[in-house]
Write a protein that binds this DNA or RNA. Structure first.
Lengths: 153, 153
DNA sequence: AAAATATAGTTTGTATACGAATTATATTTA
DNA sequence: TAAATATAATTCGTATACAAACTATATTTT
């Protein structure tokens, strides 16, 4: 069975992720926002005024993708691009009052949804799940760095 | 800390999934195929001749998405749509010899990649990780069914 | 059997992911 | 300091996700 690992870990992780996004999107629909926009907005709420570059790193969004997401968040007046006085190439991204209010409203609501998602699973197992999640992510980060370095040579 | 669950479980799972797809895509590039095309092709390899509908369910692909993926797989002659003699609306999807050969080549190779991804993580923890993954998926499936039923009323 | 309903697959529209090219500006090097 | 290189952000092209509308065909209801 040559694809046991693949099936067990990779496919299952990817499949779960899509389902999480699907159900969260259902719940976020009434707020006119998507899972990914939420991830960016929440990161911004927690970070305060940061550059688009930094926001891209912290929210794990590609710069091209982030451009689009910020366009949408701006359209709803949840965020604003402000010229960075220290570097004319860059923007500082500012969450608006409306954006902050949304985070404060949606945050607790989403936590209820997550309560349903983890229902019946031991806290202990969940902690271990998170731990493995982190290890896997770390391994992949290492591999990705290695590959991108190899590419440059 | 009102978004702990969101951050700990949701965002982390989604982030990991994207990274898995990213690194696997890097490796699959030389075969001119993507992670998602691979998932479909592998499912088909394991299932034999099945309808597009069934393939959609087994590979967890939306029917619209699957249409596009099959278009691409067909372009590379890895699969074919065959008229279903029992139902003129439907197609049977057939993996070609070229497609089978690809699966047999890529499968073991991908398993090596997954070996690197899980490097240094206890087998026991990985099993538990999978177990939680399954439970979470099950919970979400239940919630999604519940929601889609509510919608119809 | 005709009408109503359900189903398989495609198309369309919007959002996301991401590599590559492009533009404007900074930083480094010769 | 002029030239080369690096960086921040946008744009473009291709792939995926998914809801909704649409087409063709099946199935069920009356």
């Amino acid at each position: 069975m040559f694809m046991s690992m693949d099936k067990a870990i990779g496919s299952a992780s990817v499949r779960l992720s899509k389902k999480i996004a699907r159900i969260v999107n259902h719940h976020l629909k009434e707020f006119n926002i998507t899972t990914e926009q939420w991830a960016v907005l929440r990161t911004l709420y927690e970070s305060g005024l940061i550059t688009q570059k930094t926001l891209s790193e912290r929210s794990d969004k590609d710069k091209a993708t982030l451009t689009k997401i910020l366009d949408l968040l701006e359209k709803h007046a949840y965020t604003e691009r402000v010229q960075n006085p220290e570097d004319r190439r860059s923007f500082l991204i500012q969450i608006t009052v409306k954006g902050s209010r949304l985070v404060e409203e949606v945050g607790p609501y989403l936590n209820e949804v997550y309560g349903e998602i983890i229902e019946g699973i031991d806290q202990e197992k969940l902690s271990l799940y998170q731990e493995v999640l982190t290890s896997l992510e770390h391994n992949i980060d290492t591999l990705l760095v290695y590959e991108s370095n190899r590419k440059k040579e």
